[in-house]
Nucleic acid binder design. Structure first.
Length: 233
DNA sequence: TCGACTCGCACTTTTGAATCGG
DNA sequence: ACCGATTCAAAAGTGCGAGTCG
């Protein structure tokens, strides 16, 4: 490990906000309505999902995300590349996760079935990327990762984690907000949605194929791989 | 009774402080 | 005094499975 060169210019941004909190969600302009998608702007701000192939691998099986009381990271995580920003302007990056439909699901017969209506929608929480606000140059010079964001099923959560209902289908969204003045977020907004990052929340994996994929691709789960140290037989 | 959920466990990587060498 | 590399222990991220809850 040792030196991490990207820490050096971490001072180039001013950490003004906690990574996530309700207050920040309220201070925001209302979560951007869907009409602003990446393709709709003519100034060509672009976002690319860097680990798209991994996401698609999961998506083709039916991505499941564990949610826990204390908060669980997403795997795969969102790894993004930004381009088309003004090098010297400051931007804030946000992650939010919105319901895809009004249904509750159950895994049966090898697939996901709708078994009823969704739970009441909870107050939206956003995850503010810890580098925010930072210059366009900063965002464009590296892979942007939201792996610090955590998901929880605890509706009373006080850690600022994103609160979701189990067994519901969700779609992550990333917002890029121009912040000319750190206190005024009124600038242009861009919202990016990658359909392959859609997932269903669970408290325990339902589809064994997803478990396999996670074990084989998440380094923390290495201990469960068959070729790993853990095959005690 | 049963599906959804919780918790402790073994195993893993990551983090960060201390130490060393030049 | 400085800087980078190395070491090492603590912290934190995994799925599992037994147990709990409603």
């Amino acid at each position: 490990m040792g030196s991490r060169p990207q820490d050096r210019d971490a001072a180039a941004h001013i950490p003004l906000f906690p990574s996530a909190c309700d207050a920040a969600a309220k201070a925001l302009p209302p979560p951007v309505p869907n009409q602003l998608t990446s393709k709709s702007k003519k100034d060509e701000v672009k976002m690319e999902l860097e680990n798209s192939s991994l996401w698609k691998q999961f998506s083709s099986v039916g991505t499941e995300m564990i949610i826990t009381k204390k908060g669980r990271r997403m795997f795969p995580g969102l790894k993004l590349k930004l381009s088309g920003l003004n090098q010297s302007l400051r931007y804030i990056l946000l992650l939010d996760i919105v319901p895809v439909d009004n249904s509750r699901y159950r895994f049966q017969g090898g697939g996901w079935q709708v078994v009823g209506g969704a739970e009441a929608r909870l107050p939206d929480r956003v995850f503010i990327h810890p580098d925010s606000p930072a210059t366009g140059a900063h965002w464009q010079s590296r892979t942007i990762s939201f792996h610090y964001a955590k998901l929880t099923n605890n509706t009373l959560d006080s850690h600022g984690h994103i609160i979701l209902h189990s067994l519901h289908r969700y779609q992550p969204r990333v917002h890029v907000i121009e912040a000319r003045d750190v206190l005024k977020w009124g600038g242009q907004q861009h919202t990016f949605v990658f359909p392959e990052t859609q997932f269903i929340t669970v408290t325990a994996y339902q589809n064994h194929k997803i478990t396999e994929l996670k074990i084989n691709s998440n380094p923390f789960a290495k201990g469960f791989r068959e070729d790993g140290m853990n095959n005690k037989k």
